[in-house]
Design a protein around this nucleic acid. Structure first.
Lengths: 362, 362
DNA sequence: CTTCCATGTGAAAACGTTTCCACCTGTTTG
DNA sequence: CAAACAGGTGGAAACGTTTTCACATGGAAG
């Protein structure tokens, strides 16, 4: 706690016996300087332990060398990995990452963007609740701040690093169908605040229809229900008769297995489960989890690279969606034969929400 | 992409027909102003869509309202959660989080701190490879920047939000011992770059000794070995005869189970496994993982609160270590009786590293 | 010997704030 | 009625940079 006040380039210039401009030129190698002066300045800077003030620089150049990143929460490893990917793509470019998280709150989203904007970030990488409705995001656009999205489908000409959730979910329906499943469920944790979940449901729903399966049951869980196997089991038991469940993320899928065990059901014989995200741990489980593999870190990297291009003034080009991959696993198998062909007989509980109308159609 | 240039307080003042100083006073409610002028200024600011430039403010007040945070990697959920905790504690204080990650590289650690310092962060929250040796960290100290550590044991009077890894590890040894285990192993992924791993080993080792058990086998894994069950199985099979393994994190512990299955061993009958961290998923597994529960988010929150106090000028007080909790689970059981009492007979492979000397003694 | 140019150099403006100070008005006090 | 004071107000300095511009100096070209 010794030296409380900072050493500026003025101090260096004084110590070296030259003008400020010269010191700046030497230290930045941005202009001519005699060997002798160069030497004095460099020595002075070293002796004094000088380093440039990024703030002074930012003010004068109106480039903060900072890029802002907004995600719902770092407690979700998917977003955390994406941010790590951004970090990696940024390393070596001189840009720093200013982070904000909204806790899945649309209001907080707007505040966060406003704050980031006030800090004059040179670019923005964003995942939020409702990008298409966010006034703050619109303002950022008009403001001319380069912008790139993550996880969202591209909107309004804004580039986005994403996977095609709709297509990926169709793939899951296809697998279910091919194995002979008919009655399925879709489990989501934050359906209303996650366009990803909604797109997945839409794709799943569309493909089920296309294959003549009954509409999947949509089950939206609360945080508590998702984390308490007993509660989850209760919910699942109200939906007796389904042979396969598509969980909108891997954690949920694992929770479903636990709940199934509690109910005395065996995965996959009594219930097939497929997750989403492809977290590493799924592979190491007793019964490896069938899931859609995605690469959040690659998403972060792509978002960052796109943003860097944009900041270079390059035209905004939307990259194709990042690939996903269906990972086979022990949690997916054909249904028990006896429950195969009784579609017509039983009354089938309707979807919890009926939002088939406002769903994307592919 | 319309309005590329910014609106400054000057524009507001001109629009309102008053001086800059007055505009500033009105907008900050920091001084007297007539009702009429106040009105004009506020209207002007609204009409123009003015917002303060954090950079201009930072330059003039020499407070950037930014705090820097360095962690090894956000791909590790433990650190990601901690950062999320920091984020939460900071929300509403007006401080933003500037993030850096080092990828477990000590050199990168130093660079990152230097960069953060150049950005004139008002405080620093740090988890790094070797805080006790870092010159950059020392410089930050001398520079007078408020500092708080996470995950590390307190050093040099720097406060740290941490759990007592040594004690927690002793707890594991105690559990093993009470169940009758004697030959144990300690698995670590990044032993050389993680003081946490080292402290855990030290505590585990110390308690094993204290209880008259043979020294635990120390097994340091490469990234590849940890993620490839086959490789891990090979390694484990070279250490035949041990009945219990303490993995330095839960992911490793789960990998060990997978490897054991590959070897035809049954957990916990043939091999007990205890992890560390207490990730949520461990609870949902087929065989719930026995582990030491910690709360990374609480660590982040504590680190942030301590830092805020420090920045208020309060004296630096070291909080007691955060509590840990032994979570019982299906992966821990007494060893098979036949392998109980043959200590003296067999030759026991020595620890991979023999660092018993430089280990913390409690 | 002049003219020109290259090279090295420093003063000063600009970036967007906040704050100190001085200057106005009126109004209250002696 | 003069003096002191309070409330409003704006000019200008400061924060740490970079960059423009102008001024030197010297050597080469005319």
């Amino acid at each position: 706690m010794s030296q409380r006040q900072k050493i500026t380039i003025k101090d260096v210039a004084r110590e070296a016996g030259c003008g400020i401009a010269t010191a700046s030129r030497v230290l930045n190698r941005s202009g001519p300087a005699s060997a002798e002066v160069r030497d004095r300045v460099e020595r002075a800077a070293r002796d004094l332990g000088f380093s440039f003030s990024a703030i002074g620089r930012a003010l004068q150049s109106s480039r903060s060398m900072t890029i802002g990143c907004l995600v719902p929460s770092l407690a979700n490893p998917v977003f955390a990995e994406a941010v790590q990917g951004v970090q990696e793509a940024l390393s070596g470019t001189g840009y720093q990452l200013l982070i904000a998280s909204s806790n899945y709150d649309g209001e907080a989203d707007n505040d966060a963007i406003a704050t980031l904007l006030a800090k004059e970030v040179d670019g923005l990488i964003v995942t939020m609740v409702a990008p298409e409705k966010s006034v703050a995001l619109k303002r950022a656009c008009q403001h001319g701040v380069p912008l790139s999205l993550m996880f969202h489908d591209p909107i309004d000409g804004l580039p986005s690093a994403h996977v095609d959730n709709f297509e990926a979910a169709r793939e899951v329906a296809r697998r279910f169908s091919e194995l002979g499943h008919r009655r399925t469920g879709f489990l989501a944790l934050r359906f209303s605040t996650s366009d990803r979940s909604r797109n997945r449901y839409a794709g799943f729903h569309a493909e089920c229809r296309a294959r003549g399966m009954p509409d999947p049951a949509l089950i939206e869980l609360s945080e508590a229900e998702a984390n308490t196997p007993r509660l989850l089991a209760e919910i699942l038991s109200t939906l007796d008769g389904l042979s396969a469940v598509f969980a909108s993320n891997d954690f949920l899928a694992i929770a479903v297995q636990k709940a199934a065990r509690l109910m005395g059901k065996i995965v996959p014989q009594d219930l097939s489960v497929v997750g989403f995200d492809g977290i590493e741990i799924g592979r190491l489980l007793d019964v490896p989890l069938a899931t859609i593999e995605t690469a959040p870190d690659a998403m972060g990297r792509q978002a960052a690279r796109t943003l860097l291009d944009l900041m270079q003034g390059e035209a905004c080009i939307q990259q194709p969606p990042l690939p996903f991959n269906f990972r086979a696993g022990g949690t997916l198998a054909p249904p028990r034969t006896e429950s195969r062909d009784d579609d017509q007989g039983a009354t089938w509980p309707p979807s919890v929400h009926s939002l088939k109308t406002e769903l994307k159609q592919g």
